[in-house]
Design a protein around this nucleic acid. Structure first.
Lengths: 149, 149
DNA sequence: TTCGTTGTTGCAACTGTTTGCAATAAGAGA
DNA sequence: TCTCTTATTGCAAACAGTTGCAACAACGAA
């Protein structure tokens, strides 16, 4: 069963109406091989039909995030991206200095997520989240000379 | 030495100019006991002087984040907050459904951050970051009845 | 102290995102 | 199939945040 049908079934089960606009947005994000910005999703939808408004794209993406079917990550520099679990869970290491984004495996975090669930009753859905820090290149540069030297 | 003087010294060392506007913003965020939105920082600055523009507040906060002196976290619902290390590092567990935000200790993540540094050369500066998921109450509700039933 | 360089600022325009509301339409029930 | 309820949509306005640029001013050198 194609991935987007899974999403549609889940939304239907949760009482949401399935409109052609929603199907379009879901199809685009579900079949994407990597995360996309809302503007990219909108542009892809516009290739197929002009009958979907940007506000509807934002609303549908937010609905998918709220229902745990997609995740949203701020990668800095105005890059807010959406992704589904189909992309495979991973985290983004975002350099706060140069903006470089590096992907990292989320598996090592899983014991920690179980710990959080035990302590807080909170279930992490961390398909894509961002951790900010400093990349190797920027650290090397900072050690060599004071910035703005 | 008050915290804000540390920030100012660090910026000066990195070659940034120290303007009255920047001192004002730094003083507000450095002395705050908890994280603040940019709008809250701006309002606090406005109590003292009207000679600081909102754009300057954003620029100064971004500068502090870029220099590792503050961190920025998106807590959902339009809540983007800034905080300094003085607030004590902790992570925010944000429920994607109801928006509840729960703080959690960052200490259990530290071995993982060392692992990331070893694997990627990337140094996490995780004073405040957000992990999205589902809180205990929303999970209980979801198990009991399908949403939007 | 003065002067020159250049980083910084305020402003208004712009961008990405959200929101109020009337019109539209999905879908359940008869 | 039809009707009614109400969720959803498109639209334009609004909002949070960013940006280009001329004016201002921090700061180092003389």
């Amino acid at each position: 069963m194609p991935h987007c049908h899974t999403f549609i079934a889940a939304l239907r089960q949760h009482g949401y109406r399935i409109t052609p606009q929603r199907e379009m947005v879901i199809e685009v994000i579900a079949h994407s091989r990597q995360h996309m910005t809302a503007e990219e999703v909108y542009a892809e939808v516009q290739k197929r039909t002009h009958a979907v408004n940007i506000a509807t794209v934002y609303r549908t993406l937010d609905l998918l995030v709220e229902e745990g079917l997609a995740s949203r990550a701020d990668l800095g520099g105005g890059q807010v991206v959406y992704a589904t679990a189909a992309h495979g869970p991973h985290i983004h290491l975002v350099c706060r200095q140069c903006g470089l984004v590096v992907d990292a495996d989320v598996v090592p975090f899983e014991p920690l997520f179980r710990q959080i669930e035990a302590a807080h009753g909170f279930v992490c859905s961390p398909q894509h989240f961002a951790i900010y820090g400093q990349c190797a290149a920027c650290r090397a540069a900072a050690d060599a000379v004071p910035e703005r030297g």
